[in-house]
Design a protein around this nucleic acid. Structure first.
Length: 135
DNA sequence: GCCAACGTTGGC
DNA sequence: GCCAACGTTGGC
C-alpha cells in the first residue's frame, strides 16, 4: 500500500464536507506532477487530508475508493480524478509548524514542494504523522 | 527550443 | 497584502 497527501483549501472543499459526503471526487487538478501521482494511486491506498491556507494542518485520513479516471471537469480530457473515501479524522491535527520542526518530517514534500497539491508520503513520514496525530 | 513575462499557489 | 516558488504562455 502506498501513502499520499492531498491538499485542499477549506474555503473550497473542507474536511467537514469530505466527512459529510463520505466519498468525494478529487477533480480539478491541473498540474502534471500532481496528476502523475493521481494516476499512481491504487484502491486501498491511504492519503492525508491537508488544509492549506487556512488551518495549515493535516486533519484526517482518506482512502482511495476509485482509481484514476478522466476528470469530468477537464474539457481537454488530459487530466484525471480519483475518488476518495473518508476514513477517520486525526484526533489531534498535525500543523505545518509541527512538521517543520520535526526531525522526521521536516523534509516532507509538503515543506519542500509547497505548491504540489498531490504528493507521496513515505511510510516513515506516515507513521510519524499518525503518532503525532494521536492514532 | 530558449527564455522573459505573467499567473497562481500558498506561507507568512 | 506581500512575495517566493514554480508552472505556463508566447515571442523570437
Amino acid at each position: 500500500m502506498k501513502y499520499w497527501l492531498v491538499k485542499s483549501e477549506p474555503g473550497t472543499f473542507s474536511w467537514d464536507q469530505q466527512v459529510k459526503k463520505g466519498v468525494s471526487s478529487w477533480d480539478g487538478v491541473r498540474n502534471h506532477a500532481a496528476a502523475g501521482h493521481l494516476r499512481a494511486m491504487k484502491c486501498g491506498d491511504r492519503a492525508f487530508f491537508y488544509h492549506s491556507n487556512e488551518g495549515k494542518e493535516i486533519v484526517g485520513i482518506v482512502e482511495v475508493a476509485k482509481e484514476a479516471y478522466p476528470d469530468p471537469t477537464d474539457a481537454t480530457r488530459k487530466f484525471v480524478a480519483v475518488d476518495l473515501k473518508t476514513l477517520k479524522p486525526l484526533p489531534k491535527p498535525v500543523t505545518l509548524a509541527q512538521i517543520k520542526t520535526d526531525k522526521t518530517l521536516k523534509d516532507m514534500a509538503l515543506v519542500r514542494l509547497s505548491r504540489l497539491s498531490v504528493q507521496p508520503v513515505t511510510p516513515e513520514e506516515w507513521n510519524r504523522v499518525c503518532a503525532l496525530g494521536g492514532i
